[in-house]
Design a protein around this nucleic acid. Structure first.
Ligand SMILES: [Mn+2]
Ligand SMILES: [Mn+2]
Ligand SMILES: [Mn+2]
Ligand SMILES: [Mn+2]
Lengths: 220, 220
DNA sequence: AATAAAATTTAGGGAATGCTAATATTTATT
DNA sequence: AATAAATATTAGCATTCCCTAAATTTTATT
């Protein structure tokens, strides 16, 4: 259906789109795929021709529904193969990316379906990233971090960027976990440390900590 | 290392080479790969440039050692993946070819090694074709058929092309099996049926039968 | 508002791979 | 041996994908 190169572009655009609103820039794509900007412009025009992206000269691209669907199909394959490599063959989680980058382009609906079944319909890949289902549904990935909140704003803890045991143990000591409600009561401009109130208790968190906590903002 | 297209050509040349001595013809390759002769000539020149084949204009190509090695590596991957699809995912033996045709091009030494281990180092794929080992060793595939022998020549039975139970049962009735020694005593030009002596017994075999028996020729 | 800097697009080109039509060579048939 | 038929190669062209250098447009800075 699509070439490997087209699929790589769609995937890159999808990921860049997650991380920022508005159009995805030519330079963003070119960095992500390690190609030159001129090559990106050319490919983006072809993708627009095929109605996989909306492209506005000089203002970047956005995936259409068709483009998003295809991107998710590739991401699904990528993460299923990573799971296969780690769970069934004895790859380490840091050795799988390059191979999955190739395997994600194999075209066979039956293969994807059977692989998914064989692996026990996993929901997350070895890196903890969610695996889209056959329809492209995937748990929303939290992108907002506690550090981005202003004084007086509130958020609910949705996940962590750093998943090392030391960080998780630190959080446990403070009674912070998934679902914890924060209200920012003070931001120290000197070092960007933050005071948040949790269950009417004041907790001081370093920049380092607040940058590693994903939240969903709650309107006051 | 090599492109998908190059690998497909090497594999095709390898298979055609098995089935006949002398150079592999341009038209043979073009039929096998469903491309035009002109495209074959062009690719064959590139392969010769890279010393994967010896090419003599108008007289076809032959794989060099390097070319043969690469062809065997691709065949190894193809057959391992077919085995995976049938043994581990629930593919039927007649559904695997197209997918294996893609999977055979994935580049990762570790993946091939781990897949081989995971499958229990199988020796034959779901179609009964032998799987080359990592060094490219593979049981010799018999290519000569009984039908090719002339009157007075001898051969030893090495395998069968048609492996249907009806054919195998027919052979069993005549006491023909792996290792059986034939000597051709007569060829009936009218219908190409053949009389062979086996253990000093004369047996009449139809063209249909002799065309499905692989042999190794024995010099008289 | 003018200018400088950064980002993007266009122009022109190359490698890989395939095609059709024209030409050359080999092989088969008279 | 001459000719016809079959095979193979060359010439010329198209597509995909990537590149560098030049031109254009947007964004940032004076
Ligand atoms: Mn990829
Ligand atoms: Mn992953
Ligand atoms: Mn293939
Ligand atoms: Mn097979």
């Amino acid at each position: 259906m699509f070439t490997q190169s087209e699929e790589n572009y769609l995937k890159a655009i999808f990921h860049l789109q997650q991380a920022s609103e508005g159009g995805v820039s030519t330079s963003g794509i070119s960095e992500n795929l390690e190609t030159k900007a001129a090559s990106v412009t050319e490919m983006v025009k072809r993708l627009a021709e095929k109605e996989l992206v909306n492209y506005q000269k000089y203002y970047g691209v956005q995936l259409t529904d068709a483009g998003k669907k295809q991107a998710l199909a590739v991401i699904r394959k990528h993460r299923l193969w990573e799971t296969f490599l780690v769970d069934r063959l004895s790859f380490n989680w840091d050795e799988v990316h390059e191979v999955a980058e190739q395997l994600e382009h194999i075209q066979s609906t039956k293969l994807v379906e059977e692989l998914d079944r064989f692996l026990g319909r996993p929901e997350y890949d070895p890196h903890g990233d969610p695996i889209p289902d056959a329809e492209g549904n995937m748990p929303e990935i939290p992108t907002k971090r506690l550090i981005q909140l202003q004084k007086g704003e509130r958020g609910i803890c949705k996940g962590f960027n750093d998943t090392s045991s030391s960080f998780l143990q630190f959080l446990a000591k403070l009674n912070i976990g998934l679902g914890t409600q924060f209200e920012v009561t003070h931001i120290e401009s000197f070092d960007n440390s933050m005071t948040v109130s949790v269950d009417n208790q004041e907790i001081l968190l370093s920049k380092m900590a607040t940058d590693n906590i994903y939240i969903e903002e709650v309107s006051v």
